[in-house]
Design a protein around this nucleic acid. Structure first.
Lengths: 368, 368
DNA sequence: GGAGGCGTGGAAATCGTTTACACGCACCCC
DNA sequence: GGGGTGCGTGTAAACGATTTCCACGCCTCC
């Protein structure tokens, strides 16, 4: 009359470890040990267990696991906004490495809204994440405190608070930016400007410093008004370039702190009838997906976001898996390098005609 | 000598429902009832409980909750690849609505790899998701079976298998595509081509059908060779447009099944020295973020991916929360509409000079 | 003053694992 | 042959909530 068992929530029996044990004619402890790879289990029994798992299509319940083992195998990833073209590649890399290591990821999009940040952190704490990668700016102290109190490891980009369980991934900005500047130098540019990001952000500050250093290295020292602060948005790039064009004297090349800024700058130049790269060269930073598709395709410094993600996951796992030994506080993990496309060419002062004919040097795409 | 309590996994005491109960001077039953919003709880006690929760910074353990209640409050989202510009907006919308409803989301990127799909599904089953939105193509029957067996609701785009717990979100392709075709008609185009997606995909097939219907509505009937099958990738768009340009007679406008295809087409036209929109108009579909930034900015049919996401979450929640009543199998939830940018203008046959002067009709951007 | 109703508290069962501990067994050595 | 030794297995107790059951206190009303 009644079913074999009565269940509270559903009519179908959900498989559990007991079913597997019964099917393999062993105890649940043996099943658990087998699944968790304990090496002392007898080969024959292990074989029987795996066979049963396969036949029954058994998947262990992670909630029960997490509850008893205290390990959720969940990592949090906090980004500014997933629709910002900077992030998808980061998310992809993060997911890839995390799932490889048996972790699941919880994504939180802050949209720069403190309220949402708080909400994201709450969700992550509730789900008992074992670590959080903080890839957004302007997160507030109290929220970090919330995580720190619960001994949740955190990883940041560029700079982390000096505390236990917090580490930082360092990006070698100088490398790629220097390449970019030298690329311009080779093309004859001596008058090079810079549109920075918001200088309250450590990473923006570091990019600017790398630029200034590199440009001095080639013997240039741009006047202050050629170094304009933007905000890493397209609109910021527009505003900055508009200001630059109103200067009595303008540079022949402009480097930007990120690609969105550069794209904004390109837009102003197009509107103003200044052809790129003939009259002005532009270099971006990040190499977002978009960079390849704007007009002209943007020469930019590529930052491997997938390796950033990889480093972040590894730093977190390192904290989690060897909690006793203090891991390195900062990992210099991410390199940058120049990707030459079509927004850079010879400096116009080197002679219009010459640059017009030699315009395809160092490029590949448009030739075909 | 020893701490107040011994814990297995960490030295710090993790807050418990008992701690809250003690702090609020009530029983754990009352705490549970309060947190879960049982209405019979005395106001004053509830106040005390919430106060204790706040003061102690208590977050209920979701794993314990999930275990006993059988509800994980987790939804799965399966996408092709997060770096495909089509998806971030979808993910964002999904996250937004899901978290609003108290769900967390698990993202799986299949990268079109059957092995990875399998892995994603496994992860979702292990985590006991309460529903899965399947936003990728080419998922295989056995995998769906795996989910269906476990009574996990699923939602698809355009078309779902005819089974219980499965539903589909319908997109009104016709609406936007018709707008696009009529826009071209107004500009004097009579010779209109189409680059479709891979016709094995239901959604590609529907877009093509909508195009053919709309174009017949304006009294045109394009020859077969003007309707070319692409594959929804940039490379596919390139190949298709190359084929089209080799025809003895080419159309004056081409509509594409998605934006990536259109961008590929634009690239070929640029290379071939065919100015867009002067010699040929191009319309895309989707309105991905990129569309605004290519050259010329792409006129395209916008599909509100955030509302698609919203509909998907709602369909899943509907299954979950009212499992008894059969929900509507298909929800016509997503509308489409034309976004005019700069890749469309008058048909060249209407007179070169005239179109050159009138070229800014219906646009805004480049004027400023 | 007793009946009835309402809401709280205590205790216990439950969810599906992991894991400490005990136990059985074979082996080996004196 | 008896008694360690060691290995592998099974039993049972956690883990942290929800949920149910029942008793009990308190208030109200007759």
């Amino acid at each position: 009359m009644a079913g074999k068992r009565t269940r509270k929530h559903s009519l179908v029996k959900r498989l559990d470890i007991h079913d597997v044990a019964r099917h393999a004619r062993v105890s649940i402890a043996t099943v658990s040990r087998t699944i968790n790879g304990v090496s002392t289990v007898d080969k024959e029994l292990a074989r029987r267990v795996w066979k049963a798992v396969r036949e029954l299509n058994y998947f262990p319940n992670t909630h029960a696991r997490a509850l008893v083992s205290g390990r959720s195998r969940l990592l949090g990833l906090l980004v500014s906004e997933i629709t910002n073209p900077f992030f998808p590649e980061l998310v992809q890399g993060f997911e890839e490495v995390a799932t490889q290591r048996g972790y699941e990821i919880l994504i939180g999009s802050t949209n720069y809204d403190p309220e949402r940040m708080k909400d994201c952190i709450r969700r992550m704490i509730e789900r008992k994440v074992e670590g959080v990668a903080i890839m957004t700016f302007g997160i507030e102290g109290p929220l970090l405190e919330e995580l720190a109190q619960r001994q949740i490891p955190m990883v940041f980009v560029d700079a982390a608070p000096q505390r236990a369980l917090m580490s930082a991934i360092r990006v070698n900005y100088r490398q790629g930016i220097r390449e970019g500047v030298q690329h311009l130098a080779v093309l004859g540019h001596r008058r090079i400007g810079f549109i920075s990001g918001p200088l309250v952000q450590r990473s923006a500050e570091m990019r600017k410093a790398a630029f200034l250093e590199s440009v001095r290295e080639i013997g240039c020292d741009p006047p202050q008004e050629w170094v304009i602060e933007g905000d890493h948005t397209l609109e910021g790039g527009v505003a900055a370039m508009e200001r630059m064009l109103q200067l009595p004297e303008i540079p022949t090349a402009v480097m930007c702190s990120n690609d969105m800024t550069a794209i904004g700058a390109l837009r102003v130049l197009a509107r103003s009838g200044i052809p790129v790269p003939e009259k002005m060269s532009v270099i971006g930073f990040d190499d977002i997906h978009l960079a390849e598709f704007v007009y002209p395709p943007l020469t930019t410094v590529r930052m491997a976001r997938s390796s950033l993600a990889k480093a972040a996951v590894e730093a977190l796992c390192c904290h989690v898996e060897t909690p006793d030994q203090e891991p390195p506080r900062a990992v210099l993990a991410v390199s940058t390098s120049l990707t030459v496309r079509q927004s850079t060419s010879y400096a116009p002062s080197a002679g219009q005609e010459e640059s017009a004919t030699a315009i395809n040097v160092g490029r590949s795409e448009k030739k075909q």
